[in-house]
């Protein structure tokens, strides 16, 4: 079983992610304190800076905006920022499969 990896304390750049309460969609904490649906809009933290992002996430959990905020490790690539781990890459991209003939 894969739990959310505890990325806090990682040497990697970090972003903060959660699921939106009302519909469960994956969201990322942005620089303006809001939540965006695309990783490229996320604010990047280094080291202990992420504590501020996690605190913002916890506050927004109390405000019934999101569920389960946590830190996610990312890497910079020529194509932009991507999560380090497969689980988070799937959260960014959505399912890698779709039904053959979904309407």
């Amino acid at each position: 079983m894969q739990a959310k990896v505890k990325a806090k304390g990682s040497a990697q750049p970090l972003v903060v992610s959660a699921n939106r309460l009302r519909d469960g969609r994956v969201v990322w904490l942005a620089a303006d304190g809001g939540w965006v649906e695309h990783l490229h809009g996320a604010v990047v933290y280094l080291g202990e800076e992420v504590d501020a992002g996690l605190a913002a996430g916890e506050a927004d959990e109390q405000r019934q905006l999101v569920v389960g905020a946590y830190a996610v490790e990312v890497v910079e690539t020529p194509g932009g920022m991507v999560p380090l781990r497969m689980r988070e890459r799937v959260r960014v991209d959505g399912p890698s499969v779709l039904p053959v003939a979904a309407e």
Partner: peptide, 28 residues
């Protein structure tokens, strides 16, 4: 009550699970 903030996620989770509602990677 959950959407209004009257229930926390910890309080709501067992109630939604009793009705088959999970929170998964991308959605409920």
């Amino acid at each position: 009550r959950r959407l209004a903030g009257e229930l926390t996620e910890d309080e709501f989770k067992p109630l939604r699970l009793m009705n088959g509602l999970y929170l998964q990677l991308h959605a409920y």
